[in-house]
Design a protein around this nucleic acid. Structure first.
Lengths: 191, 191
DNA sequence: ACCTGAACACCGTTCAAGT
DNA sequence: ACCTGAACACCGTTCAAGT
């Protein structure tokens, strides 16, 4: 409410937060840069001091998503020493992230691909865990760790995307994220 | 070019075709109903005789996508009697469909979920093939066919979505669709 | 340096009016 | 029955002007 009293880029974060609010409330199709400005109490031209365009603001939202996801996966990987359990928890964390932060998740995989390396960091957490699982002979060692990690990522990503859409109760997609991931990983990998 | 000479719903299909053109050329974010009308040579109000809204037109595009996908999968499933080969071809066909018709694929999984039962039909083709593969002891019989088909669908869908985004060369996602699907299915299922 | 006010071209949608 | 013309509120973006 403190109109026009932003300082040191506080408006920048306020715009990102407002964008996330609107995305969570109404989704991407109803998202409007003008409304973000209105909600922050500034003119419709003000955001252009901090972002080049609407897409640029959305890219900043996506970047926060990549950072949050990486944090979550990092903590999850450290939460257990059991190799099998770690893989299952990583899968659950990925699908849960999508369900808990659909505004971030959808934004990350919608607009222009992020040049930020943090998506790669997240992949590497999975990659290490896959490597360990192969070393422990829990999963097939015939495909390279990279191919195996890529395949598991695809399965988790597809699961997240599909289960986020409403009426897939027909396919039993209404389970909790952790169960979805666990069932899928054990079906595909025999875990 | 035959301005205002549409008859028996020919405009309806012309609008759908125009929408697909624009979606393929410029993507969803640049898509405009007014431009669809302009391209068809009618006023901006004309589409409202055939569709309730912009979203309704996009839903019609999605429906054509579900129909085309189902056709493709149906033919693919009939193209071989080898159970293993059929599963691999179905996977390849799914990812190839996404790459050949990104306008349709993205539209199908974007707007409001389609109430059309043809997505279920496509799933059932996969389900039958999974059932056969389990009966032939090619893949694990421990998970139910439904759960196994759901998991494979998730993997293929994730693969399609992720490989459609540009700069994932880092993860080796620049292979042809058939190879992507085959590598993933054999990594996950040991096929 | 950061924001406002006003403007531009464009959008989705509505509705009276034309044939 | 199907389309036009004109209008409405809204959008993304630009830019001169204010402090």
């Amino acid at each position: 409410m403190s109109r026009a009293t932003y300082h040191h880029g506080a408006l920048r974060q306020a715009l990102i937060d407002g964008a996330r609010e609107i995305l969570a409330e109404r989704g991407h199709d109803q998202f409007s840069l003008n409304e973000v400005a209105r909600r922050a109490g500034v003119s419709t031209a003000a955001p252009y001091r901090h972002f080049e365009s609407k897409d640029d603001l959305l890219a900043a939202v996506a970047d926060q998503g990549y950072a949050t996801l990486h944090q979550t996966l990092d903590r999850t990987a450290a939460s257990t020493d059991d190799v099998r359990e770690r893989l299952l928890r990583l899968g659950g964390a990925y699908v849960r992230f999508a369900h808990d932060h659909p505004d971030l998740f959808v934004t990350m995989f919608r607009g222009r691909p992020s040049p930020s390396p943090v998506g790669v960091d997240s992949f590497n957490i999975l990659l290490r865990s896959v490597f360990d699982a192969q070393a422990a002979d829990l999963i097939s060692t015939h495909p390279s760790p990279e191919l195996m990690a890529r395949s598991i990522w695809a399965a988790l990503h597809g699961l997240a995307v599909l289960s986020l859409r409403q009426p897939h109760q027909r396919f039993g997609m209404d389970e909790p994220p952790e169960d979805l991931a666990a069932h899928t990983l054990s079906a595909l990998l025999g875990l």
